[in-house]
Simulated scan of single mutants.
Amino acid sequence: MLAAARKDLLLERLRRDGRIVAKEIATELGLSEDSIRRDLRELDAAGLAVRVYGGALPASPAVADYATRTAVAPDSKRRVAAAAVALIEPGATVILDGGTTALALVEALPRTHPCTIVTHSPTVASALLDHAADVFLVGGQLFKHSAVACGAAAVEAASRISADLFFLGVTGVHPTAALTTGDPDEAAMKRALAARAADTYVLASDEKLGAASRFRVLGLDEVSGIVADADPEAAILRDLAAAGAALVPVR
């Protein structure tokens, strides 16, 4: 089997099964594990898979640059945002992560809703200018890929926050890889913010479900719920629930 055909097959298996075990597929195809691992390294380098111990997981399309992500799954993000807004009680203090799903949440939030929003995203903060909500912006070094503040100064500022809710954005929600993102500093910032809220909810539009990125943020059982946009009968929801995730339905 030619290398191109092998890679196509590996990608099809990732889409179908949500993971690849190098030893198993090498045996199935009558190839060496080294050949499969080489293919997986090349798929990883191309951003089409994420290599893990023993195999690979589907790569998340949500690791693209910020401008590109605005056009990815906009309807799904709006559905997630509407379900998330319903969790915000009047007068609540809410930490809002950066990203395009967080921006969709701002759009869904009624402009007269009384609450306090804390965010490390200047784009999210500016989108709240016409809202009644009080807005506090956490500063630090700007991570331009996601338009959020990260680094030591941002983590230190986050340590002084106390909130009712944190809406967490990730690029991957996977039954075994858990909640992941594409940058280690951004992952650390997300953990710091989650530690400052009574409840953390994940904003999971459909392109993130079953996908994974390089850096782990939190385990599925370390958040209060995952606002997941998928068919209620979808296999990925069953797998996430079996792995310990609490799922918030999106209507």
Rank of each mutant, 00 (worst) to 15 (best):
P175F: 04
T176W: 08
G244Q: 08
L137C: 06
A178F: 01
G47K: 09
A204R: 11
T68L: 07
R13A: 07
L40D: 08
M189L: 15
S121R: 09
R214H: 09
G18I: 13
V52S: 00
F166W: 07
R41Q: 14
T100G: 05
D75A: 15
V155H: 15
L96H: 03
V80D: 06
S146P: 02
V118C: 02
D183V: 12
A243I: 06
H113V: 02
R51D: 02
I36L: 11
D221C: 07
S224C: 05
G139N: 04
D239K: 12
C150L: 02
R37C: 08
L57W: 15
A59G: 13
Y201S: 09
E28G: 01
E12V: 06
G244R: 11
L43M: 05
D130Q: 04
A192Q: 03
K208A: 08
Y66L: 12
P249W: 13
D65T: 11
A235S: 14
G219A: 13
R111T: 13
E222K: 08
L218E: 06
A158F: 09
F215N: 11
L137D: 10
D34Q: 14
D164T: 02
A157E: 15
L128E: 11
R78N: 06
Y66T: 00
D39T: 06
A212H: 06
L142K: 03
L43E: 03
L247F: 00
Y53C: 00
A73K: 03
A92P: 15
L31D: 05
V72F: 14
H145M: 02
V21C: 08
A3K: 14
A5P: 00
T101D: 05
R15P: 01
L14F: 11
D130S: 15
L109A: 04
T112R: 13
A194E: 08
R16A: 09
Q141W: 07
E156G: 12
V52R: 08
